[in-house]
Design a protein around this nucleic acid. Structure first.
Lengths: 249, 249
DNA sequence: CGAGGCGTTGAGCAGAATCAACAGGAGTGG
DNA sequence: CCACTCCTGTTGATTCTGCTCAACGCCTCG
């Protein structure tokens, strides 16, 4: 059975029906989480893995004074390891941004998957590498990219990541993030995000309405963002670094 | 034999002389790297690991227009995996900030270490978890901490990390970073770093001279930075969250 | 002795925050 | 069904944090 997870892992390693079935069997039935609710609960086995089947979530950190920073965005096919609880205190939380459907791979099932199938083992390792590459890229964005560049870069990243799980077509994808969400992800205020959005819209680079993002000028947007998809380690971006995705059927 | 690496890993898992010796044997003889030179070379086996024996290095990303962002700082005992080369293009480089002594653990030695000794396996896994926790914390700093807070937080982090490898005493530690380095790590300009430094000095929180940092008011600094050492997952910070380090002998 | 990197200072500017207000839409309860 | 509330998106005015440009002293090192 094809799930967002297997779909994504196939970008790192070719997976046959055998591997896909092993994955599907390991996944426990999904549960739903409401927007704004936290996903990972204290006391979970830290070696198990939560996989997003649908919906968007985020790792975030909230200060007492109200400031919030979104540390990373979790899309369908992404894993949120509850490693957070490996030791004493959790340093961040994972929350749903939209209604989210979560499936779990238990600790033992996960261990068996990795030990019994080399391809899956490799795929999960590359997945983890890609996740840290994304985190590093966020560091670069927050540190050295300007407001417009940051916004443009995030949209480029999300479009490619969604493409990798079949949730985007050539130039558009869902964009459930509100402006407050974008602000907390990009380290700015909603007011400023709003104005930056108006700028990129005025530059005819993209449209964003009814929770859908359309790239009007993908190359222009990438140039502006200094976006180089190779850090995502996806097959698609290696095969065709220019025209990112083949047009949908 | 005790190395910065074994010293650090002991913070995650108790290691006996057996494990320490296994580690020491796996380490190939060290090589020196000059400041400003890059450490990891193209073509290295991505599964091997470079361990810093002495000196400071950093992951960084440089744009064509000159902007540089330091993505993370690597201290003695830290591992810099050349995973960077797992796929096509490298997304960042690793460079020496001071003279650096590097030892390598070959790919096969590393694999044997992990498979033959459960404690070491666990220790390396926790090390990796701690590294990503640090990366997340940098995301939070760059996104939502003000100039002073960022600077204060970085100093707190570095002091604790250096303590974990025995390179700091109760209130002071080496600080080879120049103001341009600090600027590139914290996403600001050297001019502004300079002024922020003057502020924290004026507030009698710390002194910084001849490449040495002294925390005059550690608690005040931590409060200012909203620094909670638990994310570093170090034993010391769990045992004594208040008075971070026991005074040296 | 010259060169280059580092640290420091000043003046002026700009990107982003803050404060405030309001319109539109979705959901809720009377 | 309507009034109400809350959240999102938008705009304006003002403030401030941090950047740019520029200059200079200092130190190290060749």
């Amino acid at each position: 059975m094809e799930t967002p997870l297997s779909r994504k892992l196939r970008n790192y390693v070719p997976l046959g029906p055998v591997e896909r079935d092993m994955l599907a069997e390991a996944l426990e039935p999904a549960r739903m989480v409401e927007p704004r609710a936290d996903i990972v609960e204290e006391g979970e086995d830290p070696r198990s893995v939560n996989v997003i089947q649908s919906g968007w979530a985020c790792r975030y950190r909230q200060f007492e004074d109200g400031r919030r920073q979104i540390i990373s965005l979790l899309l369908p096919g992404d894993c949120c390891d509850p490693h957070i609880f490996l030791l004493d205190r959790r340093d961040h939380a994972i929350g749903a941004l939209t209604p989210v459907s979560i499936a779990r791979i238990g600790a033992t099932a996960m261990a068996e998957l990795m030990s019994r199938n080399a391809a899956l083992d490799l795929a999960f390792h590359r997945e983890a590498l890609a996740a840290s590459a994304i985190q590093r890229e966020w560091t670069v964005s927050l540190g050295r990219r300007s407001g417009v560049e940051r916004l443009a870069h995030l949209f480029c990243e999300l479009h490619v990541r969604l493409s990798a799980v079949g949730l985007a077509d050539g130039t558009s994808c869902p964009m459930p993030l509100t402006q407050p969400d974008l602000a907390d992800a990009l380290g700015q205020t909603t007011v400023h995000i709003n104005r930056t959005l108006q700028d990129v819209r005025a530059a005819r680079l993209l449209t964003l309405k009814s929770r859908r993002l359309t790239l009007l000028d993908p190359d222009g947007l990438r140039r502006l963002a200094k976006f180089d998809p190779s850090y995502l380690h996806l097959q698609a971006s290696r095969v065709a670094p220019r025209g990112l995705e083949a047009p949908g059927p």
